[in-house]
Amino acid sequence: MATGGRRGAAAAPLLVAVAALLLGAAGHLYPGEVCPGMDIRNNLTRLHELENCSVIEGHLQILLMFKTRPEDFRDLSFPKLIMITDYLLLFRVYGLESLKDLFPNLTVIRGSRLFFNYALVIFEMVHLKELGLYNLMNITRGSVRIEKNNELCYLATIDWSRILDSVEDNYIVLNKDDNEECGDICPGTAKGKTNCPATVINGQFVERCWTHSHCQKVCPTICKSHGCTAEGLCCHSECLGNCSQPDDPTKCVACRNFYLDGRCVETCPPPYYHFQDWRCVNFSFCQDLHHKCKNSRRQGCHQYVIHNNKCIPECPSGYTMNSSNLLCTPCLGPCPKVCHLLEGEKTIDSVTSAQELRGCTVINGSLIINIRGGNNLAAELEANLGLIEEISGYLKIRRSYALVSLSFFRKLRLIRGETLEIGNYSFYALDNQNLRQLWDWSKHNLTITQGKLFFHYNPKLCLSEIHKMEEVSGTKGRQERNDIALKTNGDQASCENELLKFSYIRTSFDKI
């Protein structure tokens, strides 16, 4: 039985969820670079991206490699990797027998973001014989899940209580170790020597080791999670996991709180800001991140802002960003909400898709409305799209047979046209069989910064309504002859009103 693990408890099935942008060198404390989270699957090609990484700022997932063999891993080693800020997950990587050479110096898994409450997941690794993470000293947050690894031993010899604050939620089941077939031998045991430290858990006094050649490092209890030197002297209180010299914040392997210019500090002093819960960055760093993602459509890219001495992905609820200094300031009234469309555009074809934009005031991208039916549609669209004030790209209304009016965009005031449909149009209306009105132009103002209007096959939309939009939106004169079809717009509506004058002759039985 794995020490510190839980057996036999019912657990939810383990679901495996399925960018080499360097964020800056980590400095003297770390020998390499800070790398983003990685999802490495199918083959070993991307694994080489770990070569210079000291910190993975995010998670590391290595999974679904069915053609790899043990010899493929023999020359692979990433000794610079010290810390993973989120979680480490391995799933069905064939041929991998140990992690001792792959990650010989991995010391800390912070667990800032977890995989279903777990910071370390080893699942269905069919050839893994031992973990071998002999320098792993601290899992700051989260638990361990090690399950269905039929060859995995050296679990009962690990004292997880020396690595985690609590072992109650560890789930370590259905491994070879369960069948008591392992016969784990710690260093020196074969020669009758006791080389590794022994600890007591559940009444068992057991030597602690990761492999037959690597003991588990056990520091004096007084050192807590700070770690200790090879001689057993406690590291500085700002260290986490390990250090090369005692009581020196510049000799830590990793930091308990924050890293700044080669030393570990309790908090980031001005003019620095907390970033990702582990390091200090200056304003320029946060500003660069903001600008890199301002026009990016890459998933996970955030326009970072500053709030409460932190550089964070977005302002919290009730705050909006001051564009001059990136500071989050309290909103006066309802907060603006910028919604970034991942692929640059979004099609609204149902109430469900409209709900995804609920509360958005600025759309960074283009909207395509293609709704053919739905219950209580006008009210639903207004509830979900009615706060949109600005669209950076274009607005396209296409084959939306259920629409009679666009009044559900009740606050839309600006279409920038930074991206144009077919390279020309910022407003595009095609084949809307029941569209009769755009907006009530006596109450609604709309500016279209650039781009043209396109109207074709809107049989109940009168040309007068379209011409009014040209005047109000500032697009009059931009359109070419064929942009607004004269014969297919309003051709099934009563669009022309003329005053009919009647004269009559009164007659009676005795007068003409």
Rank of each mutant, 00 (worst) to 15 (best):
D169E: 13
G142K: 01
V265M: 11
S98H: 04
A254I: 02
P249F: 00
H290E: 03
P270Q: 04
C264P: 01
N282L: 04
S317K: 04
V108C: 04
F283S: 04
D159Q: 12
E231F: 15
A230Q: 15
T267E: 02
K80W: 05
F258M: 09
I40N: 01
S112M: 15
Y134R: 13
Q216S: 04
L128H: 01
E51K: 01
H307W: 14
Q245A: 08
C239R: 00
F258V: 05
D177H: 15
G300L: 10
N175Q: 11
F115A: 12
E147T: 12
K148R: 15
C186S: 06
S98C: 04
G95L: 02
L76H: 05
W160C: 02
I201V: 14
N195H: 10
K294M: 09
D288A: 13
Y154L: 05
Y30A: 15
I139N: 01
G227P: 12
L128M: 08
L81V: 02
K129G: 04
F66G: 09
L60Y: 00
T194F: 15
S166P: 10
L114Q: 11
H59C: 13
V34N: 04
Q61T: 14
S324Q: 05
V126L: 15
M137A: 07
G37V: 13
T267I: 03
G232C: 14
V281S: 01
Y154S: 11
L233R: 14
P316H: 02
G227I: 04
I56G: 00
E180L: 09
C252S: 00
S77H: 03
L155V: 14
H302V: 07
C243W: 01
F66A: 06
T320M: 08
L88T: 00
C293D: 03
A119G: 05
V34Q: 04
K80Y: 05
K292P: 03
S143K: 13
L326Y: 07
W278K: 01
Q204F: 15
T211R: 14
G262M: 06
P197I: 13
P220D: 14
G241K: 04
L44E: 10
M137C: 13
L120T: 02
N135V: 01
G95A: 06
L260M: 04
D159K: 06
R141V: 07
N322K: 14
H307F: 08
L102I: 14
S324T: 07
D277W: 05
V218Q: 13
A230S: 14
V281P: 01
A230F: 12
I82F: 09
N170A: 10
G227L: 04
D177P: 15
V305T: 05
E130L: 04
F285K: 01
Y118S: 09
W160T: 01
W160Y: 10
S225Y: 09
S296D: 14
F115Y: 07
P246S: 08
G203M: 10
R298L: 11
L260H: 03
T194I: 14
H307Q: 04
P316G: 01
W278H: 10
W210V: 05
C293S: 03
V34E: 03
K224I: 09
L106C: 00
H127Y: 03
D39N: 15
C301N: 02
D178T: 12
A254D: 07
S112I: 14
V200W: 03
I56D: 00
C255H: 01
L44F: 10
I62C: 01
S161F: 11
Q287G: 15
L63C: 14
V200F: 14
E57I: 07
L102T: 03
H236T: 02
D86V: 00
W210S: 09
H48F: 07
F115T: 04
Q299T: 06
T267R: 01
L64W: 01
H214R: 05
H290I: 04
L88W: 00
V108P: 00
R141C: 03
H236I: 02
E168L: 10
E147F: 13
V55M: 10
I163G: 01
L89H: 04
C335T: 08
C286N: 00
T140H: 11
V305K: 08
P270V: 03
S77W: 08
T250K: 01
